[in-house]
């Protein structure tokens, strides 16, 4: 069981790291599209890894199934939301940041 615990801790820590990096990115990145990318990381990698970490610690299979369903749901909706945001911004003509431009 100790192996599972260690694996779970590693996954949880990695997930937390992604969430934090997503937050930092949201504040630091220069334009809308890069920020959407940062926010997307929180949803997919961050939440995904945390859920995996939790999955290794579930006491019963019912909880495990629920966690899996949540993961599936996040895997479907997170990227879709990022895509729609970026698509809408592109359609409205939000400009893309290039090297040397000021932050927006």
């Amino acid at each position: 069981m100790i192996v599972l615990d260690i694996a779970s801790v590693v996954l949880l820590a990695a997930g937390a790291l992604f969430v934090v990096s997503g937050g930092v990115g949201l504040l630091r990145f220069p334009d809308f599209y890069t920020r959407v990318h940062a926010a997307g990381i929180t949803d997919s990698a961050g939440a995904g890894l945390i859920l995996l970490g939790l999955l290794l610690r579930t006491p019963s299979w019912e909880t495990g199934v629920r966690l899996l369903v949540i993961m599936l749901f996040l895997a479907l909706t997170g990227p879709t939301a990022s895509y729609v945001l970026a698509f809408a911004a592109r359609r409205d003509g939000v400009p893309i940041w290039r090297e040397g431009d000021p932050r927006r």
Binding site: F73, L76, T77, T80, Y83, V84, F87, R91
Partner: peptide, 15 residues
């Protein structure tokens, strides 16, 4: 009604 967003429509229909 966001009709242009094909990905959104597919995912929504699925969900």
């Amino acid at each position: 009604d966001l009709v242009d967003y094909r990905v959104l429509r597919v995912i929504s229909a699925m969900l």
